[in-house]
């Protein structure tokens, strides 16, 4: 079995992975022995693979394992599974998931002032997720949620305003709010976050329609 350059090159990855048949392997070997260009191509395969294998992985800290198992113990002992969402039901609701994202307490970063307008069908459960990016671990953070009259937080049907203290871990923090539209109307969900003398507000315009399909649009608002 003899191979030319193009036949050899399409097999170089498999040759590198040792996934050729014995006959093909020998034929590629023979060709490489006499072809500098294909040998050079093989070196390029090797360089690429090496670089791929060297792609870095961010190391976890020493508390990673304890943190994971700590959450499992908390979750399956009746306590809340999420320190950030403490006090809230975190069950995934069917339908919409809206993400808000921001970087907090970093004055030099521009604030994204986009507000979302979400239209939802009446009585559909959906989930609004607020994402907070914290530059460092933050203790003693106060969060408050104000809901429009036509929206309920599942599990807290009689509460339109909730405030609680929590902590943010460095990096991404997700607060999942399982919401349900109980009447036709339009109003603002306002989430406020307080840390020391600083605060930040997030607003979602929620519009309830009949049983229309879900649609959405984005419009600007002025941040607090």
């Amino acid at each position: 079995m003899k191979m030319n350059c193009s036949e050899t090159r399409v097999r170089l990855d498999d040759y590198y992975d040792d996934e050729l048949s014995v006959l093909e392997f020998r034929a590629v070997n023979e060709h490489l022995a006499s072809c500098d260009e294909c040998k050079h191509e093989l070196q390029a395969v090797d360089a690429l693979r090496q670089a791929l294998r060297d792609m870095p992985v961010a190391e976890v800290d020493d508390e990673f394992e304890n943190r994971i198992f700590g959450e499992v113990r908390k979750h399956y002992s009746g306590a809340s599974s999420s320190r950030f969402a403490a006090g809230f039901m975190t069950a995934m609701a069917a339908g919409l998931a809206l993400w808000f994202a921001t970087s907090i307490f970093i004055p030099q970063l521009p604030v994204d002032d986009a507000s979302q307008v979400v239209m939802v069908a009446l009585n559909d459960a959906y989930e609004v997720r607020l994402k907070f990016d914290a530059p460092v671990d933050l203790e003693q953070v106060t969060l408050s949620i104000d809901l429009p009259d036509n929206i309920e937080l599942e599990g807290y049907a009689d509460r339109k305003e909730l405030t609680w203290q929590t902590q943010l871990k460095q990096g991404q923090n997700i607060l999942a709010l399982p919401l349900k539209a109980v009447a036709i109307g339009e109003g603002e969900l306002v989430a406020q976050l307080f840390y020391g003398d600083k605060s930040r507000s997030f607003r979602v315009i929620l519009k309830t329609t009949g049983n229309d399909a879900l649609i959405y649009q984005v419009r600007k608002f002025n941040s607090v």
Partner: peptide, 17 residues
Amino acid sequence: RKDKRSPVDLIGDDESI
């Protein structure tokens, strides 16, 4: 799949390598 169903893209996932 759940994230793909979200009508709004994630903003500012700046930690991604």
